[in-house]
Each structure stands twice: as structure tokens, then as C-alpha cells.
Design a protein around this nucleic acid. Structure first.
Lengths: 183, 183
DNA sequence: CCCTTGGGTTTGGGTTGCCAAACAGGTTGA
DNA sequence: TCAACCTGTTTGGCAACCCAAACCCAAGGG
């Protein structure tokens, strides 16, 4: 097993990710971004934003000009763009290739955007590149499934297939990492 | 925009997810699970596990027999299985279809397993079902990419393509959710 | 019978991140 | 000029989670 606590050893937290992308988005939308604007966009109080941004400023990701106008440092911009890219890639995959309803795709993409590795993002990009959208027919399947899952009238996934996939993964992974079962 | 704080409104937290799946795994491996066993497997102290499990017991996900042996309630088992399934599905997708090295696939799958919706998992299952593994050729591409990303010698993703994908997503989403831009 | 050992719990600390509330400045209308 | 507003900051609370360390208890070994 990989160390499960990697979960919060990310370049930026979920919260920070949204602070950064909000600033970037506000700059594009209205040319400037203030604490209140960010707070409004994120739906949290000015106080919270103020405190969080103080941290991001100390980390050199956010800058502030003489008129309390916020901006991103080069590093901050790089991170914000990376996150935005990952969000788009995942949303696109979930929506176009898995046939998920767009609000769900957006929601799930938003949750994982700051967690996945750069390599994963690149690999997904290559994938999206090569597959054109010939996956429309899956949308119908997924749509009907959506109802049945809510009813609880269908198991989430046949466990024997999980078993199969699981052992396949194990087989292939033996080459890559020295495995001592528990971390 | 979807409410970004959905991030921590999940059925169980990342931490809880691992506590549950650890118990389940220990039961399979050695027939019983105690606080210390879980602590050892997760790499945290007994004290932390004790406290966390107290919460999970109160929520009715974990049970304890007369000999301090832990188990999962029906609900707890359902959740643990769901999470395990999602992990396998994602790991399988990342590894077999995106060609990621298995340790990376495992790591990323571990990060998102408790975040994605059931519908997403089902859709991914259907996807894996229909595509057999004809994606080996992408592995080489990804492998070489991995090195170049670390060197910083390659942008994470061409931004004009992000633009394209982004506007496509917007177009398709207009049918689904009433959009007022900020949340 | 005592003492070591391992398992479980409790407690005080630290971190992140949100809120509410109190404050400090600046702008503007009357 | 004064009051009403809008902005930004600070502070005390709270909730998750983690750790370290102190404790309690039962089981053995000598």
C-alpha cells in the first residue's frame, strides 16, 4: 500500500486551489480582484479569505498591489493554470467519454482537480486527444443507471469483477514497486 | 460553478475511509482486527485510531465485540466495499488505459476513491467493460513524458486546447443546469 | 507475587479552515 | 461635517485529525 496520507501532501490544498483560481478568474472577468470579490465568489466570509490569503502571500503565490488589488505571482499563476487544466481535462473525460450529466462531471472534477499528479493529467490529455467523441451511446446507459442506483435497486459493481481487476493490477504492479503489504 | 465545498461533504472522510477499509482488510487477512492492528496498518498512533473509531462507532459504521475485536456494521461494510470498488476501478483505468506506472496509479486512485460519486463509478465500470486493453501503446508515450515533465521541459498541456475543451463543456452543460456563473 | 509488556483510552498540543463579531479606514450623500 | 456603507483585518470558537505521553488493565514469566 502507498502511504494514504499523501492525500494532504499536495502542492496546494483544496481551499487554496479555489482561492487561486478565483483570483485568476476574477482578473479575467473584471480586471481586478479584491478580498471581498474572492469571498463572494467562494461563498465564505471576508475574514476567512483574508486569513487564507495572508498565508498564500507568505508562500509567495499571491501578491497585492498598493490599492489592495490581488494578483498571482508567477508561481501562483502556474499552479492556478495547472489546476484549471486538470479540472477541464477531468470534466471533459467524465462528461464526454463516460457520459456523465454535466453537473456531476463538474462536481467530481472539482473535487479531484488538485489531487491528481501532473503525469496523470498528461496521460489523460493524450487519451482525450486520441479518442474522439464516439461515446455518445454510453450516455443513455449511464442515464438509466443513475436512477436505479438512487433506488438502491442495483449493486454498485459486481464484486467478482472487482476481484478480477484487483488481481490483474497486482500482477502488473509487481514489476514496479517493492511490496510489503502494509505501509 | 458548483459549490466547491462539496469537497468535504462526503459520506466519509479520507481518514474514515481508510479506517473502514483497513478493518475490512484485516478481517480478511487475519480474521480479526483490533485498534493496534488498524494503527499499525495506517501508520498512525493507537490513540488517534481509538478516537477516530469512537466516532465511527457512534455513527454506527463500526462495531466492537466483547473481546475488543472490531467489525463493520452492514452500513460500514457497504461503504468500505464501495470505496474499495472505486479504488480498483480508478486504479485500473489509470494503469491499464492511461498507461500510468502502477505506483502512480495506485496513489492517485487512493486520493480520489472516496470523493467520486456512485454514478461516476458505475460509468467508469461500463467504460472499462467495453474497452479491452488495446491501449498499451500509450504507455510508452506516457513513460517518456514522465521524465520531461519532471525536467520542466514540457508544458503541462497546451492552453489553446484547454480553451477548446472548456467551451465545449460549456456548450453541452447549458441544457443541464441553470447557470449563474458564480455560486 | 512482582514486574514487564502489549493493548486501549485520555489529555494537552498543533494544524487547517470555516464563522461570527468587533474594529479600523475610506468614500459618499445630505 | 456626520452617518451610512463598503472593505479589510483581527480574534475567539469550533471541528477534524494527527502526535506524544501518561494511565489503566490483563496476562504471563520468573
Amino acid at each position: 500500500m502507498i502511504d494514504w496520507r499523501e492525500f494532504d501532501h499536495n502542492p496546494v490544498s483544496h481551499s487554496a486551489a479555489h482561492h487561486l483560481t478565483s483570483i485568476q478568474q476574477l482578473l479575467e472577468e473584471q480586471g481586478y480582484a479584491r478580498v471581498s470579490d474572492v469571498a463572494r465568489k467562494l461563498g465564505i466570509t471576508r475574514g476567512s479569505v483574508s486569513v487564507t490569503l495572508k498565508g498564500l502571500r507568505q508562500r509567495g503565490l499571491v501578491v497585492e498591489d498598493d490599492h489592495k488589488h490581488l494578483g498571482l505571482s508567477e508561481e501562483g499563476l502556474r499552479i492556478a493554470r495547472g489546476i484549471h487544466t486538470k479540472r477541464i481535462l477531468f470534466q471533459s473525460f467524465l462528461s464526454e467519454h463516460l457520459g456523465l450529466p454535466s453537473n456531476l462531471a463538474e462536481q467530481d472534477a472539482c473535487k479531484v482537480e488538485h489531487l491528481v499528479s501532473d503525469v496523470t493529467a498528461e496521460a489523460l490529455a493524450l487519451f482525450l486527444e486520441s479518442r474522439s467523441v464516439e461515446s455518445k451511446e454510453r450516455e443513455a446507459q449511464v442515464h438509466s443507471l443513475e436512477g436505479r442506483i438512487k433506488d438502491g435497486s442495483v449493486d454498485i459493481f459486481p464484486s467478482d469483477r472487482v476481484q478480477t481487476l484487483s488481481s490483474e493490477l497486482e500482477k502488473n504492479s509487481s514489476s514496479t514497486h517493492e511490496d510489503n503489504d502494509d505501509e
